[in-house]
Design a binder for these strands. Structure first.
Lengths: 161, 161
DNA sequence: ATTTATGCAAAACTTTTGCATGGGA
DNA sequence: TCCCATGCAAAAGTTTTGCATAAAT
């Protein structure tokens, strides 16, 4: 199944996608590589390592080179679509999507599971910082670190499930 | 407030340093490598890339190997002393110190300058998340992204103080 | 028709390992 | 003394380049 009737249609990617809008608005071209990376990011709900993006893109369209994937990841970061962060301390960054410019999650430092949440209540703080530091704030990332219930043990015991 | 006259004392590193305390308390040995990395981190006010840590440690004590520096950085991260984060999108992470388990700053996405601030007012949110998600929260990182006054241009500046 | 963006593959780096040995506690 | 942590150097990965070519607009 390929939607090649009209050049503009791409599978599984609505034309009104906000990221695509921004991309175009910023003067960048809508290429296969960018479209595919975006598709992968959205499919993974915006928590994915560079290594996995690479793998997924390769699976979806082997014709896309790794260099383009990295270039796209960098571009998306510059545009504020995503943000690299260290979930696993390993070398590969985990990219999180910055919906509306911000992202919030709690990470279990044991199993690396994450829990996203919506309300951070940082509007007042943002306004204050903006005024005090004279910095035009565009977005933010808030990460809490802790240990989840499972990792603390079913009955506070040391054994893991 | 320096209480340093005993044989075990290392230059510029008070014995009551909280990180050293935690290190020992966790059962780890106080080695030259760890002491030097800690010294570098504190000297840089806790915003430094792995590459720079490597360089500084090498300068202070060339006998310390790179592997040990990385191992120490990883250990300190596990212990919650520091946290790797992507300030520059380059490959090397920037480590920030987690004073009291948390860290907050505003980063200018243009010049990469950062502004730390103390009050985040996240106590209530933390308590709520802890209860709702049943995760024992140990710390957090809050990053705001924006453009500073200088990068917006001298004449472009607002009439804000 | 213009340029921007790409793919390829090698180059450049950063980080990790294995192992014998030195240095903390 | 015990054995954790280190140093060394090679190995393992990940990310970046340079350039001719493809493909968006």
């Amino acid at each position: 199944m390929r939607a090649a009737h009209k050049a503009k249609d791409k599978p599984g990617m609505p034309a009104d996608n906000p990221y695509i809008q921004s991309l175009k608005q910023a003067g960048y071209r809508l290429t296969q590589a960018r479209l595919t990376v975006l598709e992968v990011l959205e499919a993974e709900h915006g928590h994915i390592t560079s290594a996995d993006v690479l793998k997924q893109v390769e699976r979806i369209n082997p014709a896309i080179g790794r260099a383009s994937v990295f270039r796209t990841l960098e571009l998306f970061t510059q545009l504020g679509f995503i943000r690299p962060t260290y979930i696993h301390t390993s070398v590969t960054p985990t990219y999180v999507m910055m919906h509306g410019g911000h992202h919030h999650h709690v990470i279990c430092t044991e199993c690396k599971r994450f829990f996203e949440f919506a309300n951070c209540g940082l509007d007042v703080l943002k306004a204050n910082l903006q005024r005090e530091l004279d910095v035009q704030i565009r977005g933010h990332l808030l990460e809490f670190y802790g240990v989840c219930a499972d990792c603390r043990g079913p009955s506070h015991a040391e054994q893991k499930a």
